[in-house]
Design a protein around this nucleic acid. Structure first.
Lengths: 211, 211
DNA sequence: TAGATTGTTAATCGATTAACAATC
DNA sequence: TAGATTGTTAATCGATTAACAATC
C-alpha cells in the first residue's frame, strides 16, 4: 500500500480493475484475483500483485476480496476520493463534450469553470459549468485554488495558455491539444494523444493482416 | 525497419516524434536524434534507437536525419499513409466532437459514416459525415469494407453494438465508452480511458505534494 | 484435512541506458 | 584530421511470470 512505489503499468491497470468491479452485479460479495484476471484476460499473478499493492485491507485465502471494500480501497489509492478542482480552456466541441461528461466527479476531479474568448460563449454554461472570459483566468484560479488545467484549444494557442495557467498557480496540465508543451521542471503534463491510439490500432491491424 | 518487432513503448513514442517534426519551422532541413531527445526530454539513445527502427532511409553521421524524409518514413511506418475506413456509433457530444475533428485523415483514418438511433440526428451530418439509422449499420459496413468501429455511446449499449459491429465484418474497435468489451480472439480493441489519465494525474499530484 | 486462494520470493524476460565502433 | 553523430553491442534496470510457502 505504498503509493509512491507503484509502477506505471500497475497504475494504468488499477482503474480497469475498479471499472470491472463496478460492472459486477450488486449481489457479488467477494471476488478473487484469479477471476478478475480471467475476466480481463490478464495474468493471474499480475492482478494479485497489483491488487495487493493497492488494497489496504487485502484479501482472504480461499475467499478472495470483499468487492465493496476493494472498490473503496482502489478509489482511495487512485486519489478518486479526494476531489481536485480543475478548469477547462477552449469550449469547442471537444471542450463542450468534456464539460457535459459526468464521469469526472467519481474520479476525483471537479471542473469548476470553463474559459473561452468567444463572446457568444462567455456567460453561458455547459453541463452546469459556467463559461468565463479568458481574461478572468488568473484571478479565478487564484481565488478558487485550482490545481488542474484542461487544454482543449487548437495547438497554436496551447503553449501560451499553458504558460498563463502556470502563472495562475496551477500544478498539472491535462493537454488534449496536439501541441508539445514546454513546462518548467516539476509541472505535471499529461497528454491525451489520439494519434498514438490510431498508430497502435494501425499497427495491430497490419499485424493481423500479415499473419 | 521491421514493423512486427517494434516494442509497444517505441510505438507510443513515434507519433510524438512525428508531431514534433511537424512543429519545426519549414527551413529546418536536417535534425539529429540528439536534438529531438533534448527537445522532448527523452534519453538520447532511446530516440536514436526508435528512429533507426522506424526510418527506412536512416540518418547520416554528423548531419542527422533529413526532416522531410523522416516525416515520410515515420508516417509510413505508423500506417498513416494507408487510409483505413471507419464508422462511428453514438453521435452524442463526444461523437460529434470526433466527427468534426479533422486530424484523423493525416493519421490514416477516414470516418465514412456515423450511426445513431435518434430520429432527430439521422439524416443530418456533422463535419461532413452523414448520420445514418443504426439499423443500416451492417449493410453499410459490408458494402463499404469498413475496418474500424468507433464506439462513443453509453457503456450500457457498448457491448451489444460491439457485437453488431463484429458481425458486420469490422476488425478493430476503438472504444471511447467505459465499458469493458468482450470480444473473440484476434479482434483488436483499443480503449480510450480517461479514468486512467485522471489516475495518473492524481498520483503525480500526490507525489508532488509529498515531496 | 484438502483445496482454493493469498501474498512473497526467485527466475525470466524485455526495455532502457551505457559504452563503443563506424562514418561522414 | 577532429568532432559530431549514427547505429550496435553489452550492461543495467524494471516488470512480468513462475514457483512456493502461508492460511482460511
Amino acid at each position: 500500500m505504498d503509493k509512491s512505489n507503484i509502477s506505471k503499468p500497475t497504475l494504468r491497470r488499477l482503474p480497469v480493475y475498479l471499472n470491472y468491479l463496478k460492472s459486477l452485479p450488486a449481489e457479488t460479495r467477494t471476488i478473487s484475483a484469479t477471476s478478475v484476471a480471467a475476466a480481463l484476460g490478464l495474468n493471474e499473478v499480475q492482478v494479485r500483485k497489483d491488487l495487493s499493492a493497492a488494497s489496504k485491507n487485502g484479501g482472504k485465502p480461499k475467499m478472495g476480496y470483499d468487492v465493496e471494500q476493494l472498490k473503496l480501497d482502489l478509489a482511495e489509492f487512485l486519489g478518486y476520493r479526494d476531489t481536485k478542482s480543475a478548469i477547462l480552456i477552449g469550449v469547442g466541441r471537444l471542450g463542450g463534450a468534456l464539460l457535459s461528461f459526468n464521469g469526472f466527479e467519481e474520479c476525483g476531479m471537479h471542473i469548476t469553470a470553463a474559459f473561452d474568448n468567444d463572446p457568444n460563449k462567455i456567460g453561458t454554461s455547459i453541463g452546469g459549468v459556467a463559461i468565463y472570459d479568458i481574461r478572468e483566468l488568473e484571478s479565478f484560479c487564484r481565488t478558487h485554488g485550482i490545481l488542474i488545467g484542461i487544454i482543449t484549444t487548437s495547438p497554436a494557442e496551447a503553449q501560451a495558455l499553458c504558460d498563463k495557467m502556470l502563472k495562475s498557480g496551477l500544478c498539472a496540465i491535462w493537454n488534449f491539444s496536439t501541441a508539445h508543451l514546454e513546462v518548467p521542471e516539476g509541472v505535471i503534463v499529461h497528454n491525451e494523444n489520439l494519434a498514438v491510439s490510431l498508430a497502435m490500432i494501425s499497427h495491430a491491424l497490419e499485424e493481423q493482416f500479415n499473419k
